[in-house]
Design a protein around this nucleic acid. Sequence first.
RNA 1: GUCCCCAUCGUCUAGCCGGCCCAGGACGCGGCCCUUUCAAGGCCGAAACACGGGUUCGAAUCCCGUUGGGGACGCCA
Length: 505
Amino acid sequence: GRHSRYADRRGGSWAVVEAIGRIAVSKIRVRFAPSPTGYLHVGGARTALYNWLFARHENGDFILRIEDTDAERSTDESTTTILEALRWLGLDWDEGPEVGGPVGPYRQAERLKLYQDYAQRLLDEGKAYYCICTPEELEARRKAALAAGTSPKYDGRCRVRGNDLAGVGGKGAAVRLLVQEEGNIEIADLVHGPIRFEYSDLDDFILLRSDGMPTYNFAVVVDDVLMGITHVIRGDDHISNTPRQIALYRALDLPTAHFAHIPMILGPDRSRLSKRHGATSVLAYQQMGYLPEAVVNYLVRLGWSHGDQEIFSQEELTRHFSLEKVGTTPAIFDPVKLEWLNGQYIKRTDPHRLTALLRPFWEAAGVSHEELVGRDETWLHQVASLFQERARTLTELASSSRFVFDGKIDRDKAVAQKILSGEAKARIRALLPEIEALPTFTAATLESLFRMRASVLGLKLVDLAQPFRVALSGKTVSPPIFPIMELMGWEAVRRRVEEALEEKG
RNA sequence: GUCCCCAUCGUCUAGCCGGCCCAGGACGCGGCCCUUUCAAGGCCGAAACACGGGUUCGAAUCCCGUUGGGGACGCCA
């Protein structure tokens, strides 16, 4: 069974025995292994999320590994950003950068010796060989093959030469795996079911580049083995890498991990999600005023479902998540539904947290820092809660509630002209002294005054309230105006209204 | 060119070890209700089993093929 797999594994290799000795043998172990060549995008985030949920559900370990073997493109800044995004989403890792762990280091660039040792072992056993073809030659041959409409596989020309170190020198040569020609490889994929490949479709792929750096496929297998990874959960686009990796497990004589390939997330044009499809960076959603739990909830439902349920708490997610319920169909990222979900989460957020989250967004919307710190907490909560029902993002909430503070307002000129003209202005002027004469300035007293005047004038309440709304907020869209007026206070209300009345047009 | 994956409303999906499905939920869209506006909420509506063959008393569900989409084939990951 799955829980005794480590016992089999112990015979495999000295390093494995050593590494595995340091971790619990019956635990599920999964990993998320981004390459630090950019920000964390929503596709990667969902892969991380599924790994994390699987680990939490199974009471296993979630490991973070940085795949930075491409020195050209990897940056520390990128690593930092990815870690930040994962933290923001609440995906904490049990082992990895910054937290350490028993089978580290967790950055591939710091594990080069390990890969070289394993490559040497394969070389010694005659399962790998040196290749002295230059990248330029290979590139030219590949292009020619593609242009000719034939298979661009490596032809194995260096294979026959043998590992004559005197001739090759080892230096400057790449190391390739000698792939057998007969037989097949079957992936027992936990999402797709069995997938079968022929060895003959594979070529002798490179393990170590001529500069000694490992390639992706090689480093992944060495690390997954040494880190005791039991389940590899990753994107569909890795299916065709899997037979290569399994060939490597076999050459190394080690039991393979379980694989689960999840379908990719596509753009609206059904092609791979990319920058031209708009915001794909996880942290961009933070900046646009999304709640991490909304993003998580949206992402988890892209490819996974639990009956008719749409909204899940984190506890429900870890309780219900299972790979069996992950679908096989690629999903299109729909920002509109994300926005809806975010609105749902904003509505459910308690005012304390909401207010805390809102501060930077209010400042970004033009509320001064002084104004913000000058207001007491309860007042801020009231403003936040008055607007929280109708906002879909924190940005939207902040900008629509900005006018309640003593900041400038952006009056919608067209609307203002229409609503604040003629008779409406006269009504506002007539009402101001009456409001001032009110014994108390509260939402309740304001509303009853407005209702009374409306009935005397033979108008609807809205006809009287609407001009005030526009005068105060600059827009027709806002929460109930009387509570807002109460929060603003009589002085601010009068000043705003008078400013609006003086405006031309 | 070779290999692989996928195929239910516009989108996310339920159903898929066959009958409970003339296909359910959600977003979005349209309408109505509620309402001082906008939202939120409630109710109603339009909207899908890619196509063709089988197997079967019976298929969205199983099999084959076609078409369409996607991925991989790198000294990128």
